[in-house]
Structures are given as structure tokens and as C-alpha cells.
Design a binder for these strands. Structure first.
Lengths: 199, 199
DNA sequence: AATAAAACGGAATCAGCCTCCGCATAAATA
DNA sequence: TATTTATGCGGAGGCTGATTCCGTTTTATT
């Protein structure tokens, strides 16, 4: 005896548990891809990534139909950690300090190649769909911090979180020179100083 | 009767006039490449570019051995115009106004796709050789403006021109939204405000 | 006009992208 | 546990574009 007819479509009811091997592969791929993008930039060979992950190209493409999808996958993974940090800072610090700390962390994080720098361009403001519609975690994170600092009177009311974000992403493109940390700090300070109320 | 021996190497003396067709082709290629990169991004087909320029692939590769070299070629071309603008502003305006004006122009210029946005990443701070050693025209331009504004006391002494530049490049990555001009203005103002002496 | 350096172009090689489909396997069912 | 079936696997194959190589053509020079 069968549940229903099984011949007709009844997608709303039947939701199968996802296969374990699929999950496993997905994670493997993301892991390998992150390393590959970090090392070789956003044009790393997908074929090679698949091979290193121990799957066929078909599998990779099923999980991530396009290169951008894969990049976005890696990106999302990393970005959630930053979002958590924002929450943490907000709890522990004064509004303005939290914002400053988080901005430094962002630059550091990207610069340390935990996130693929060149890929960010494609994604952060470029032709990708990440920005269209659903805002990024990062977006939500900095937006929260900025709102909070506005409320406390530490920041100008007319400030847009996006502006800061874009500036920071640009700042992360260096990697050049040993003094990037100095440089990042300077820029963050400039941004903060320029964002205070006009008094 | 021959000039010298002509058998041995005497490169310092003999410098042949460059062939006219070579020059012509070089320009054609740059022109077409600029359009292609602007339209299709930094991964535009080189084969196609060559075809449109009316040359064989071999010719393109002889002039620009790598894709980055070609991008850099286009980039340099465009960038010289910006450098000229800096000089002009410096002559006509007060130091701080000149800097502000030029920063706006930079963002606008990039945003208007006169320069290939995605390519900039590869080049401005990325893996390219443009930054290593020889500074860009852009670099020289903003550096001059900043120096001038420091001297007049409008800017903090500890400011680095690079910091501003990076922030601006980041700002140009948007393309999103019709309000980019607003956004750019806000950011420029923030940067300027944050760069003033602490008084 | 003759010569040789410089540049040309496209054929050929090669690498990486992406699709398609028969086979394998894990989840659901009995 | 045995069976069924959806789901996922992976690699062969077609394709596009990158890059090299070399015989031919063009140009500056004598």
C-alpha cells in the first residue's frame, strides 16, 4: 500500500532528507575552493578544484552552476563570521569603539586572505547578484553598528553605512607592503574622524 | 661602406626608427581593447579584440605579451588624462578644493567606465606589477595635491595619499544605484573632513 | 634598388569550461 | 531486512578562447 498515488506530483509534502555524500562533497568543495581562490585568485581552474576535492567536474557544477555561485558560496561562509563579530563588539564596547574595531577587523580579515580579495570586486559591487536584493551579512553588520553609533550621537545622522563599506573594501586591495596594517589604521581613523557630528 | 662593423652588437648607437605600421597597430589595439574591456569586463576575448583591431592574434601578443599588459596599457592611457586634471586644478583652486575636486573626478571617471572597474583591482593593488616600483600617474597626481594641501595647513601632516586613493577606488566599485554620485560625494566629504588637522 | 631588421598573421597546439547521461548509492518504504 | 526510487556521482566529449611558432611581408636603411 502506498501513501498517496505517487504518480502525481506532491512536492509540498514529500521532502527527502538530503544525502550525506552530497553534503560532504559540498563542504569539501567549498574548502578546496577557498584555498584555491585565495592562492590563485578568482580565476583558479574549476577543473582543478574539483579534482582536489576528489569529485568530478559534474559534481562541482551541480552544486555551484557558475563560477560566481562558487565564489559566492565561499564568500558567504566567511562573511558570517564577521557578522558574528559585529554582534559581539556591539555588546562589549561603546558604539564608536565597536564600529572602529569592526572596521579594522574587516580590513584585516580580507587582507589576511581569509576572503578572496579579487573576488570581492566581482561580488561586492560588481556584476554579481549578491548585492542585488538581499543585502549581505556584512551589510547588516556594519549597518547595525552605524545605527547604534548614530543613536548615541557619535556619528553624523546623514552618514550611510555603504559609504564606509566601500571605502574599506578598497582599502583591502593592497596586500602590498608590510605597512598595510598602519595604512588600514590610518584610513579607519580618517573615516571615523570624518564621520563624527559637525558639532 | 658601412657605418661600423655591423657584425658585432652596438645597440647604443644604432636605434632604428620604429615602424609606422607597428605604431598604428598598437594604437588600434589599445582603442579597441578599451572599448571591449569597458563593455565586457576584464575577461573580454583577446582573440576578438585582435580581430576587431584588424590584426592577427600574434600581433596582439607581440605588443602585449599578457592580458595584464594590455589592461595596463589601456589603463596608463586613460590615467594620464587624470594626471593632467590634477595639474589644472592645482593651478586654479585652493589646495583643499583642488583635492576635493580631483577626488570627485576620479570616482566619476572610473564610474563612468572610462576606466575598467574590475581591471583596476587586478592592477591598482593586486598582483600586477604596476604598483611595484614605478608609481602610477594617478599616484603622482594625488600625491602632489595632498602635499600641497598639507603645506597650506588644510590637511594633517601624517596623512598618506595612498590611503585616500585606496578608499576612492573602493568607492568606485559600486555601479549600483542611481545615487552613486551622492554616495561618492558623501564619501569624499568624509575623507576630507577626517583628514583635516586636529586643530 | 638591395638588404636585413622588424613586424605581420594565421595555423596549430593546448588548457580550461561546461554538458550530458549511464551508473551508483543513500533514503524511503514495505 | 529487502526493495524501490529519487538523488547524486563522475568522467567522456564538444567547445571556446589563450598562446606559440614560423614562413611571409613590410619597412627603414644603405
Amino acid at each position: 500500500m502506498q501513501k498517496f498515488s505517487m504518480t502525481a506530483k506532491n512536492p509540498p509534502t514529500t521532502t527527502r532528507k538530503p544525502r550525506t555524500d552530497a553534503l560532504r562533497n559540498r563542504l569539501r568543495i567549498l574548502e578546496v575552493a577557498k584555498a584555491a581562490f585565495t592562492r590563485q585568485g578568482a580565476n583558479a581552474s574549476l577543473e582543478e578544484i574539483a579534482k582536489q576535492a576528489g569529485v568530478g567536474p559534474g559534481t562541482l557544477y551541480r552544486h555551484f552552476p557558475t563560477r560566481d555561485a562558487l565564489i559566492e558560496g565561499v564568500y558567504r561562509n566567511e562573511v558570517e563570521k564577521l557578522a558574528e563579530a559585529a554582534t559581539y563588539f556591539a555588546e562589549k564596547m561603546s558604539p564608536i569603539d565597536a564600529l572602529r574595531a569592526w572596521m579594522m577587523l574587516l580590513v584585516e580579515y580580507i587582507a589576511a586572505k581569509h576572503i578572496i580579495a579579487p573576488a570581492l570586486n566581482t561580488i561586492a559591487g560588481g556584476a554579481s547578484r549578491l548585492h542585488e536584493g538581499s543585502r549581505t551579512f556584512i551589510h547588516a553588520a556594519i549597518d547595525g553598528l552605524v545605527k547604534r553609533a548614530k543613536k548615541s550621537g557619535d556619528l553624523r545622522r546623514d552618514l550611510h553605512a555603504d559609504d564606509l563599506l566601500r571605502a574599506l573594501i578598497g582599502a583591502s586591495h593592497m596586500g602590498s607592503g608590510a605597512d598595510w596594517q598602519q595604512s588600514a589604521r590610518r584610513l579607519v581613523d580618517i573615516l571615523i574622524a570624518g564621520s563624527r557630528p559637525l558639532k
